[in-house]
Simulated assay, not measured.
Amino acid sequence: MTTGFEIQADDRKHISGHRARLRHRILTGQGHALHDHELVEYLLALAIPRRDTKPLAKQLIEEFGSFSGLLVTDTDALKNVPGMGETSVAALKIVQIAALRLISEPVRTQPILSSWQALLDYLRADMAHLSHERVRVLHLNSKNRLIRDELVSEGSIDQAAIYTREVIKRALALGSAAIILVHNHPSGDSTPSRQDIAITKDICDAGRTLGIAVHDHVIIGINGHTSLRSKGLI
């Protein structure tokens, strides 16, 4: 007859062996073949070494829809999941931060207009899965290199505020030669609204009188993006 202790010991042995196999695949270049829940499982195992993290990993993927959806989920929402503590949440968030740092390197080190696809990849990774609207302004120097990537506002699921006066005032303070406006549509549809078009025209007009160019206004959605310049709206 087995005792409860023996069952727990067997479970620990099974979990240890499973994690060792995951680790081996990661270290031997086979990590690309891991399922999304296996990636999350191993991350959580680093934060919760004495627990079988596979069920929690599968639950997180299911609840937040995808691996990318999980990584960009709000910290508070992750903490509200039973079994998730600060260390577990931090384990997921450091992956998001590292991924964004890697993707954004061309944006930070090369002229923006010559690394446009890298910029779009970075913006989609950072904003496409957000459940609320975020507005940011990219400030560029005369060589179109990034001076500052600034968060202007974060709003509800419907809208976030952006004010022409504040955008131009900040551009003057930073000595920006040009700016790129960016925001996301939580609905997933990147089609510009009348308000998006109107505020873009206002900022373009204000910037023009002060020698500040508006290169574009990019709207990010989960299914793609829209450039107001490519649409002939700037």
Rank of each mutant, 00 (worst) to 15 (best):
L34N: 08
S156Q: 01
D121W: 13
G207R: 02
A128K: 04
R23K: 14
T209C: 00
T73H: 00
A118K: 13
A91M: 13
D121R: 13
I7T: 10
R21E: 14
S115V: 11
I162T: 04
N141R: 08
L43D: 02
Q96D: 04
H183L: 02
I103T: 07
V214T: 14
L210G: 00
H24E: 14
P186M: 09
S131Q: 08
R194L: 08
H215E: 09
L46V: 13
S156Y: 02
D121H: 14
S187D: 12
I179L: 09
D52F: 01
F67G: 05
G4L: 15
I7S: 08
L228K: 11
I7N: 10
K201G: 01
R165N: 10
V214G: 01
K93N: 03
T109P: 07
G4I: 11
P111Y: 04
Y122M: 07
N80Y: 00
D36K: 01
I180G: 04
L146R: 12
S16T: 14
H18M: 12
M84S: 01
D74Q: 12
A57G: 00
I180A: 04
R101K: 15
L120M: 13
E166F: 08
G175K: 03
N184R: 06
H215R: 08
D76N: 11
S187F: 00
H129K: 07
G211W: 06
V214W: 01
L44T: 11
L130K: 15
I157E: 12
N80I: 01
H32C: 00
D74T: 07
A45W: 11
E41I: 06
D11S: 10
L78P: 02
H183D: 09
L70Y: 05
L140E: 10
E38H: 08
V40S: 05
V152T: 01
R165H: 10
R208D: 06
V81R: 09
K201Y: 10
I179K: 08
S193I: 09
R25C: 11
G29T: 08
R12E: 11
M1I: 03
I212G: 03
G221S: 06
N141A: 05
H129M: 14
L100N: 12
S230Y: 07
R19K: 10
W116F: 13
Q195R: 01
H32M: 03
S114K: 12
S131L: 05
G224S: 06
Y42V: 09
T75E: 13
G188T: 04
I203P: 04
A198P: 00
P111S: 06
K169M: 06
G224D: 05
D10N: 11
H185Y: 02
L71K: 01
H185S: 07
R50Y: 07
A171W: 03
K79R: 14
Q110T: 09
R108F: 10
D202Q: 14
G17A: 09
E105Y: 07
I103L: 15
W116L: 11
G211L: 05
R136Q: 10
Q8H: 09
N184C: 12
G31R: 05
K79D: 08
P106H: 08
I48D: 06
E166S: 12
D196A: 05
L100S: 08
E41Y: 04
E62G: 09
V182F: 03
H129C: 01
L100M: 12
D126W: 00
I157N: 03
Q59Y: 05
R136K: 08
D76A: 13
A213L: 08
L27F: 07
I199P: 03
T75I: 02
E63S: 07
N184M: 10
D36Q: 11
I112M: 14
